[in-house]
Amino acid sequence: MSETLAPEKVATENVAVMNQLAGRGVRAESPLYHAGLDKLSALNPRAGGVLLRELKLLGHLTLRGSQKNASFMNGCAEVLGLALPTLPLTSVEKGGVSIRWISPDEWLVVLPADQAYEVERGLRAAIEGHFSVVNVSGGQTILELSGPNACDVLKKSTVLDVHPSQFPVGKVAGTVFAKSTALVRRSGEASWELVIRRSFADYVWLWLQDASREYGLVIKS
């Protein structure tokens, strides 16, 4: 490792941090607002092999720092209430907070939107040295696929080996998903979470409708 990557001992300069959550009077729209998933879920009581739910308007924080920086690792564990997973392709979850491993120095923290601002400020106060925390809540959304045929839809969409022996519950993998990209996480035996980019949300939504047509798609609100 080059020296430039080593955790620096310099104090982090003050960074302008903004609460990205608008007040109560403002209507929040997820990237799939236009699809009207809530209405579809009401119209759509039939049974099907694939259940789709948008885990919308959550707080997403991208966390970057060196695992060698004890202040970073301890500060994150303290503020998030969860230690960052250091084993590649793993995730941890507790209460409403989940942390996905993205790379050896990058993690995605997903938490309730109203906690994002406090947690971001807490991290900045608790950590010393070279690190970064960015609120990317507006840039991505999460789709949850579940049901007996969710796995089949994934097999059509991604090059990952999704067999339970290769992809156990809790595993996370960034990959190509239907020519777009997604951060795929197995959240249960038959449920999967896809973190997708806002700009690809509509495309992935159209793709998933098409790919799950033969099994029957049920929208959950």
Partner: peptide, 12 residues
């Protein structure tokens, strides 16, 4: 070497 896993060329 970072993910410590074999992946398809498509991802690279």
């Amino acid at each position: 070497p970072h993910c410590r896993e074999l992946r398809e060329e498509e991802e690279f």
